[in-house]
Design a binder for these strands. Structure first.
Lengths: 211, 211
DNA sequence: TAGATTGTTAATCGATTAACAATC
DNA sequence: TAGATTGTTAATCGATTAACAATC
């Protein structure tokens, strides 16, 4: 019981997508069993770490055999909630909004994008990448009416906190943020930020260090 | 001496962009000094951690005073190599390539994009977002002739390792990768990957967990 | 000088690795 | 059954936090 209560650390969670990705590859190659040792060779994590990671969620393996690829893939998909569907909207009908809207991995991960929103009146009413662009004024209503759970922010940093506030007020459950800002949201709202600029500066650091 | 030799851990490096960002904000607001305590309030890192982090690179503060914002900002910029200029090319003249090409933070971080490359003959020869699109066949020559140091991969996963290999063969020093693949590159080539899909799955996990 | 806050050492915490009994 | 490999406990390592002497 006590075991179930202990929250799995974020660092473990962020390794799960990698497991899932390699398991998908193995499935494609019709491999049906894999040991933690072999998975270590693929992922670069140690076999010990892999077993520790997986055992946070249950005993998916079998002594003397390893892990069944199909079963483990399904389990991890379930843990990651890939089997669930989430309705999402994108704010910012710019280039980044386009990338997100047309991103095929989205549907594969169980996300469905319903609409885009933009403050630019020239874009409002148009259809971009198969999605209708609405005015920001209509966003709250749309979110409530369509039970949208996820909001995606692709606007520049200055407008982003306001959008996040609007999302929260409208009842959104999670935000995928691309603006280079540390958004403030209530504890019960999930915030996941992609920090492109931080990644670029990290690249810059290592390039400079090696010089 | 021995101190200079110890490599700063990656986890520390990845906090530097956040420091830099908040210091930029403080500069904009004409704040001229800040204590580790105050910086803790902004960044969410502990004051102790901030002092530890900064002392990896030198004693930038002053007892009884704190840190001079301007000076610290400059120091961190230098550590991150923001003052250096790197020449880059983008492979993949698609939507993601467009995002990168028009990304203003790029120039601000010292990166200069010289050209785009694409395998699609319909795109080759065109100018997209102010950048000429060349054939992949001409890439190696272009990189050598223009001393390009950074290659940016925005193609789908299947072509990505080949591009990385071509980059490496042409003498590129660092790769910013957006393909959902763990690219293999020699030790002396810097690889920084943006894993959009991993981020999305992490969001999915926490959404599902909270349900 | 007195007060403030750093730089740095020591203590703690958490994550990774090692080891091995359990068991398929 | 014997061999293989997990699940799990214990040991190690590294990162974070606490504490405080140094000093501006």
């Amino acid at each position: 019981m006590a075991k179930e209560i202990k929250k799995v650390s974020d660092i473990v969670i962020r390794r799960l997508p990698k497991y899932h990705r390699y398991l998908s590859d193995l499935l494609d190659r019709n491999v049906d069993r894999i040991s933690s040792q072999e998975l270590s060779g693929l992922t670069g994590f140690t076999a010990s770490q892999i077993r520790q990671d997986l055992n946070n969620f249950g005993g998916f393996g079998q002594q003397g055999y390893g892990y069944n690829v199909q079963a483990l893939h399904t389990e991890i998909a379930k843990i990651l909630g890939i089997d669930k569907t989430y309705r999402a909207v994108v704010v910012g009908a710019g280039r980044l909004g386009s990338v997100i809207s047309t991103y095929s991995g989205f549907k594969a991960s169980g996300f469905e994008i319903l609409a885009m929103f933009d403050k630019n009146p020239e874009k409002v009413g148009k259809v971009i990448d198969g999605l209708k662009v609405y005015s920001l004024d209509d966003m709250a209503d749309f979110i409530k009416k369509n039970k949208v759970e996820v909001g995606i922010i692709t606007v520049p940093k200055d407008g982003s906190q306001k959008i996040a506030d609007d999302f929260v007020a409208a009842g959104i459950k999670g935000i995928w943020n691309f603006a280079p800002v540390d958004l403030v949201v209530p504890e019960d709202v999930v915030l996941e930020s992609v920090r492109l600029n931080d990644s670029l500066l990290t690249l810059s650091y290592y390039l400079t260090e090696k010089k």
